[in-house]
Design a protein around this nucleic acid. Structure first.
Length: 106
DNA sequence: CCATTGACGGAAC
DNA sequence: TGTTCCGCCAATG
């Protein structure tokens, strides 16, 4: 089980209309400082993975030149944006599906 | 095989 | 409050 695969499984669990951060995912996998790896994993993300639900800690989206549709897809799911052009984290930050995560951990 | 880079993030300045 | 630096690890040259 590679680290990347674990990332994909977590990302796949992000509910529609909510977003998770790279660092948050890294923390869930026990690698608090490997946010970059999560980013790299997204770059290699297989089709079918809701990688558009993964954003920066500040709510900023990925560069448009590598992922132009991210914003459009989030809007389609009901995600709102601030005037700064960032995701409204206060409304859409994913709890991490904490309860389910606990169950899985056990 | 070694050096550099990258969809990041937090600490240090 | 804003910029810089370091860590982390796979991929690429």
């Amino acid at each position: 089980m590679s680290f990347f695969v674990e990332i994909y499984q977590v990302v796949a669990r992000i509910p529609a209309g909510q977003v998770a951060t790279y660092g948050q995912i890294a923390i869930m996998l026990g690698r608090p400082r490997s946010a970059r790896l999560v980013g790299w994993a997204m770059h290699q993300a297989p089709s079918g993975l809701p990688c558009h639900r993964v954003v920066k800690r500040d709510g900023q989206l990925a560069p448009t030149d590598v992922f132009p549709e991210q914003r459009h897809r989030l809007v389609a799911e009901g995600v709102t944006f601030t005037t700064d052009g960032r995701v409204d984290m206060d409304r859409h930050c994913w709890s991490g599906d904490y309860e389910a995560n606990e169950a899985k951990d056990k």
